[in-house]
Design a protein around this nucleic acid. Structure first.
Lengths: 213, 213
DNA sequence: CGATTTCAATAGTGAGCGTTATGAAAATCG
DNA sequence: CGATTTTCATAACGCTCACTATTGAAATCG
């Protein structure tokens, strides 16, 4: 038997001519580079290779498209954060890995520098406040992930029982957000890694992992 | 003798009906809250209490007004940074004071939270790139101020001779920028101060100044 | 096949953007 | 006083914004 897409019979009418995921990836690059307010629908449709009516039929609105892009960012370019936090055996190792991988990812040339969420929609017109609130909640969620990982590290005895997990989480969140700002301002991977070296001193006990300097 | 404005004879035509500095302060609050792109000329003229032609006669353009506002921010609400860096006797004390004062200033209720420059115009439409470049240069200048202060601290023997002043400066710049993001996202002064406590551990040697916890 | 359904392209919609032309009002100068 | 200069207020400028009505093309269904 020949089944090209299992449980997915060809839909009724004229088939869509563009790949929704590829279009989302192109839209992501535009939003990433220009920001939510700075990206016009014309910019988006141009990069996505579709017309405005197609965009609105598929995503509802510019805001709807942005929300879809944010979801895709989290499971795509931004997924390394969640991966590092769950894979590494210690809290310190997990967070250090997030920071060091961020130094590399934030300065890649295949996409705009910096994190798409850390430095997105900070100030905006009142009409776009719902979008700003959403992005802000994504940032606070990331800090909360840090806090949970550190709290588990405390329970595991990696850190002194009196450690302030919230303060530690906000601290590393700030480092990440600051790295994103500086990556956008032109900092290199090496410069960001040097910053991380300093940042990890807050964990005490000398250098985190021995690195050639 | 009676001289109201010394060396400033009443100018020729109809006198201006608004105070330029007060208008700048009102414009500052609008740009601070909504960002450069998010603030419309209508928002600005409304807050400044003047009409659009008056704005253009006095400041040239929206961009010109923004540049004037940035200058005024640096000598006004943002001046504490320069003050702390020059007044404090040690590099560590100077930078710690910048961070602690920032925690307070970033959460004041008399103006929008966060720093007006640290988190301004990060992404924007290509038409506004000159503005983005200007603000980015202000950020890198701030980091450079940190670097110079730390370098002087090294020369003074406060820090080991091998200390990487650039990395230390970028680190504290990132802390400041991250604090600005979190202040905008709703962090309290106490939360930011807890963050600073952690950040200052990078200087080694236990707690910076003994604080009640 | 004809009927139906969905998509794509053209061509626009009203609203808001930053900006400015116009003319009256308010000051100084001679 | 009249002439000049500058500012103020009204009203609009052209343009771009996000968004959509319309129409025809391309697929499946019966």
């Amino acid at each position: 038997m020949k089944i090209d897409t299992p449980a997915r019979p060809r839909p009724r009418g004229r088939p869509r001519e563009f790949d929704e995921l590829k279009a989302l990836d192109q839209a992501m690059l535009v939003f990433w580079r220009l920001g939510y307010e700075g990206a016009s629908v014309a910019d988006l449709t141009g990069a996505m290779g579709i017309t405005a009516p197609s965009l609105y039929a598929a995503f509802g609105s510019k805001e709807g498209l942005y929300r879809r892009v944010l979801e895709r960012y989290q499971t795509g370019p931004g997924a390394y954060t969640w991966t590092a936090l769950t894979e590494e055996p210690t809290a310190r190792g997990a967070i250090e890995r997030v920071l060091r991988e961020s130094a590399r990812v934030f300065t890649r040339r295949k996409h705009p520098h910096g994190c798409m969420i850390s430095t997105a929609v900070l100030r905006c017109a009142e009409a776009h406040q719902p979008v700003a609130d959403l992005v802000a909640s994504l940032r606070t969620s990331a800090v909360e992930l840090f806090r949970e990982r550190i709290a588990r590290g405390i329970e595991a005895g990696e850190l002194p029982p009196g450690t302030d997990a919230s303060a530690m989480a906000r601290y590393h969140g700030a480092i990440l957000q600051g790295m994103s700002v500086q990556a956008q301002d032109g900092a290199s991977e090496a410069e960001l890694l040097g910053l991380v070296d300093v940042a990890m001193r807050a964990w005490g006990g000398g250098a985190g992992r021995p690195r050639a300097r």
